Computed example of a mutant assay.
Amino acid sequence: MKMIEAIVKPFKLDEVKDALLEIGIQGMTVTEVKGFGRQKGHKETYRGQEYTIEFVPKVKIEVAVQDSQVQRVLDTITRTAKTGSIGDGKIFVRDLAMAVRIRTGETGDTAL
């Protein structure tokens, strides 16, 4: 099993969610996060004053999947989250040692 974490632009969330649902991904966790990468934030002007916004708002999508689903999920997220401009985000894949469905006690792949 793998845990896939995707950091994407907030306005891409619905598109990514819908695309994942279309390929059969039934659950995900979404968190509003802030951060920066190469873009290192940006400057905004408010009432004539210039401000540096160091941490850019993003959305983190977490999806636990079977090993056989990883590439399809990666392709789907990459395709739907991409705008072609800086700050599109990143995807991280980690090994997932165990999953337990609390309601039934199922473990492993069947808990997903």
Rank of each mutant, 00 (worst) to 15 (best):
V70N: 08
D14F: 10
F11N: 09
R79K: 15
I4N: 02
F92V: 12
D109E: 14
E15C: 03
F92I: 05
Q69P: 00
K9Y: 00
D88N: 02
V16Y: 06
M1R: 08
D95S: 14
I86A: 04
A99W: 09
F55Q: 14
I91W: 01
T83W: 14
D88K: 08
E15R: 13
E22K: 11
V8D: 07
F92N: 01
F55W: 07
K17S: 07
P57C: 08
T80L: 02
G27P: 06
V33K: 11
V93E: 02
D18L: 13
E106M: 08
K43W: 08
D95W: 02
V56M: 06
T80D: 01
F11D: 11
A111W: 06
A111R: 11
A19S: 14
Q71T: 09
E106A: 15
T104H: 01
L13H: 05
R47E: 14
R79M: 06
K12H: 01
K60P: 09
I53C: 07
G48Q: 03
T76V: 05
K34L: 04
G27D: 14
R94N: 13
L13C: 05
Q66A: 11
Q69D: 06
Y51M: 00
E15A: 04
S85V: 10
E32M: 08
I77H: 03
Q39G: 11
E22V: 03
V33P: 05
L112Q: 04
K9R: 15
L96W: 11
L13S: 01
F36R: 15
Y51F: 12
A111F: 07
V56C: 01
I4D: 01
E62Q: 13
K58T: 06
V8W: 00
V59I: 15
A64I: 12
K90P: 07
T76F: 12
D75N: 15
D109P: 15
T29L: 06
V70C: 02
E106H: 07
E50G: 00
D67G: 13
V100H: 04
I91D: 00
V70E: 12
V93N: 01
S68Y: 03
D88F: 12
F55R: 10
M3K: 15
K40T: 05
A97Y: 07
Y46H: 15
I23E: 14
D109A: 10
E44D: 02
G89R: 04
I91L: 07
L74V: 07
E15M: 09
I23D: 12
H42W: 08
R103K: 11
K2V: 03
E15Y: 09
I91H: 00
R47Y: 05
I77P: 07
V56L: 14
A81G: 05
P57Q: 09
M3T: 12
T45F: 11
D95V: 05
V8S: 03
V59Q: 10
S85I: 13
T80Q: 11
E15V: 10
I61C: 03
I61L: 01
I23W: 15
I91N: 03
E22Y: 04
K34W: 13
R103C: 05
M3P: 06
E44S: 05
Y51P: 10
G24D: 13
K82E: 03
T31L: 14
E22N: 13
I86W: 04
A97G: 04
R47P: 12
I23R: 13
G27H: 04
F55E: 15
T45M: 12
L96Q: 11
